[in-house]
Simulated scan of single mutants.
Amino acid sequence: MSLFWRIFLLNAAVLTVATALLLLGPVTVSTPVLLAEAAVLGAGLASMLVANAALLRLTLTPLRRLTRSMAEIDLLRPRPRPAVAGYGEIADLIRTFNTMLDRLEAERAASAARALSAQEAERRRIAQELHDEIGQTLTAVLLEMKRVGDHASEPVRDELHQVQETTRGSLDEIRRIARRLRPGVLEELGLASALKSLADEVPTHEGLTVRARLEPDLPQLDPETELVVYRVAQEGLTNSIRHSAAEHADVTLRRSACGVELRVRDDGRGLRGAPEGAGIRGMRERALLIGAELTIGPGPAGGTEVALDVPVRKRG
């Protein structure tokens, strides 16, 4: 039965009962209306309105819950679907909304996967060019300066030595950037070694000390999942360096009931109600790709905690 006919029949039933009571009951209306008759009619009208309101609220409550779910929905933070309740058009509307959410989340996941895949490919290309082109060029410059310095006079030799140190520092920085763009240690030695290397590579001049706490005998993860865990840890440390003014940070990777969990905690000033930026949104998109749950909030002792709970897929 459609919503129109349900509401129409509810009101018709209430009015029919009221008319029958007026015609068949002992209540009559005088001219002019007596006070007792007005009281009886007022009580009857109030009863009809209460009954009508109760029936309409019961009918439209599922629609109100659906409206609240529509206002709060976020595709990057999946929640349980609204339960199908009510009858007729309302139930069909809730089912259609749930189907639409399934389709939107699937399309978003597919598009995010393509975008992140293209991003990783571009990072690999840039890292390769930094290593092969600029890195080799600077290495050649260092060798040439050393050759020239060996035949130069003492004052010129000292100046060339200073230029060599500056160039060597630039070369080390380029190599560090290339490693962050393309974590070769992740592909060669695995996730634990990559996280240790990530913690060790935080520049000391940033004023942040990072400790990596990694449990042994962790479940084996597929390459896509390892890359997501690494990128989330990398972005969490980047936020600690840039925004938190923290002095200490911990990167923890341990076994959980359903897989592994990553925690990046710092002792900085916390989020303070700041809106989520592109980095956090990117972490949420990566977490969705592997079915992980990402939580960002205050840590147990203050600061900020990034928590990634990763389920381990059982291999058949």
Score class of each variant (00 low, 15 high):
residue 79 R to Q: 01
residue 303 G to Q: 08
residue 96 T to M: 09
residue 209 T to E: 15
residue 17 V to G: 10
residue 180 R to G: 09
residue 35 L to S: 13
residue 89 E to C: 06
residue 26 P to R: 04
residue 57 R to S: 08
residue 194 A to V: 11
residue 271 L to F: 06
residue 297 G to T: 01
residue 272 R to K: 12
residue 225 T to M: 10
residue 36 A to I: 11
residue 239 N to A: 10
residue 144 E to K: 10
residue 14 V to A: 09
residue 160 L to C: 00
residue 165 E to H: 11
residue 168 R to T: 13
residue 117 S to N: 08
residue 236 G to Q: 07
residue 291 G to K: 11
residue 305 E to G: 01
residue 190 G to V: 09
residue 278 A to N: 14
residue 98 N to L: 02
residue 207 G to T: 15
residue 161 H to N: 15
residue 173 E to N: 15
residue 102 D to E: 14
residue 210 V to E: 12
residue 6 R to I: 07
residue 262 L to M: 08
residue 35 L to E: 11
residue 168 R to W: 10
residue 278 A to C: 02
residue 10 L to S: 07
residue 108 R to Y: 11
residue 240 S to T: 12
residue 39 A to N: 01
residue 169 G to V: 08
residue 103 R to G: 11
residue 7 I to P: 06
residue 106 A to F: 13
residue 180 R to C: 00
residue 37 E to V: 00
residue 17 V to Q: 12
residue 145 M to R: 02
residue 118 A to P: 05
residue 219 P to L: 03
residue 228 V to D: 02
residue 51 A to H: 00
residue 160 L to I: 15
residue 108 R to T: 09
residue 144 E to A: 14
residue 169 G to K: 10
residue 57 R to Q: 04
residue 98 N to E: 04
residue 186 L to Y: 13
residue 219 P to V: 13
residue 42 G to E: 02
residue 13 A to K: 09
residue 231 R to P: 00
residue 32 P to F: 03
residue 200 D to V: 09
residue 43 A to T: 14
residue 241 I to H: 09
residue 253 L to Q: 08
residue 275 P to T: 11
residue 77 R to H: 06
residue 68 R to A: 13
residue 115 A to F: 06
residue 213 R to K: 12
residue 210 V to P: 15
residue 133 E to G: 08
residue 138 L to G: 05
residue 170 S to L: 15
residue 41 L to V: 04
residue 288 L to M: 11
residue 85 A to V: 00
residue 265 R to H: 01
residue 59 T to K: 13
residue 9 L to T: 07
residue 264 V to K: 06
residue 68 R to C: 01
residue 71 A to S: 04
residue 116 L to H: 13
residue 69 S to L: 09
residue 273 G to F: 09
residue 188 E to A: 15
residue 73 I to R: 10
residue 89 E to H: 07
residue 247 E to I: 07
residue 45 L to P: 02
residue 167 T to L: 11
residue 145 M to E: 01
residue 231 R to F: 06
residue 76 L to T: 12
residue 181 L to Y: 10
residue 221 L to M: 14
residue 138 L to R: 01
residue 276 E to F: 15
residue 96 T to P: 01
residue 154 E to Q: 15
residue 39 A to H: 03
residue 13 A to E: 05
residue 221 L to N: 04
residue 256 S to C: 09
residue 90 I to R: 04
residue 138 L to Q: 07
residue 199 A to F: 14
residue 25 G to K: 08
residue 128 Q to I: 02
residue 133 E to H: 01
residue 150 D to W: 03
residue 207 G to P: 13
residue 302 G to W: 10
residue 233 A to E: 03
residue 195 L to R: 00
residue 121 A to P: 03
residue 169 G to I: 02
residue 22 L to W: 02
residue 82 P to A: 00
residue 273 G to I: 08
residue 258 C to W: 10
residue 69 S to Y: 02
residue 307 A to M: 08
residue 10 L to R: 09
residue 148 V to G: 04
residue 241 I to N: 03
residue 119 Q to D: 15
residue 257 A to P: 08
residue 303 G to R: 11
residue 302 G to C: 08
residue 221 L to Q: 06
residue 191 L to W: 05
residue 181 L to E: 13
residue 290 I to E: 05
residue 201 E to G: 14
residue 124 R to A: 14
